[in-house]
């Protein structure tokens, strides 16, 4: 077996870091319908349709029942657990007027203010 490519032999392999969701292929497969729905919210027209009938909008994208519940309940952690990519989930948060620091508070079990204060103090340490 030869070394087939420069830049190949080092650095690969799986990733497993505590407290760190990895958006891998299996996760992305699980979340694709929901993430596509989030991405659609870039247009004002889609946001209006979503707001008018959230459940119907989710259903039209083929979300699972669990995913739809997470979206309707704004259960941000569940959206991530059910295959949401943070960049996609954030589209919904923006619609709701929520900041990434608000989400950070949710993910870490603190308030937005505490999360922001921790960032201003230099960030949280692993």
């Amino acid at each position: 077996m030869s070394s087939p490519t420069a830049g190949a032999p080092t650095g690969g392999g799986r990733v497993d870091v505590p407290g760190t969701p990895i958006f891998d292929g299996a996760t992305s497969r699980r979340g694709i319908r929901m993430n596509k729905m989030f991405m659609s919210l870039r247009t004002a027209e889609a946001r209006e349709r979503f707001t008018a009938d959230e459940a119907g909008y989710c259903a039209s994208f083929g979300l699972s029942a669990e995913q739809q519940r997470a979206v309707l309940d704004r259960d941000w952690q569940a959206m991530i657990d059910l295959g949401g990519s943070i960049f996609y989930v954030y589209k919904l948060a923006m619609m709701d007027g929520r900041s990434m620091q608000y989400l950070g508070g949710v993910f870490t079990g603190t308030s937005e203010e505490e999360f922001l204060a921790a960032l201003r103090a230099g960030g949280r340490r692993g």
Partner: peptide
């Protein structure tokens, strides 16, 4: 199998595009 092949091939320096659909 698709995801295993993808991971192995990217680790070997093949720059695959992933089609989920």
């Amino acid at each position: 199998l698709s995801l295993h092949l993808l991971e192995s091939l990217v680790d070997e320096g093949f720059d695959l595009t992933v089609f989920q659909e």
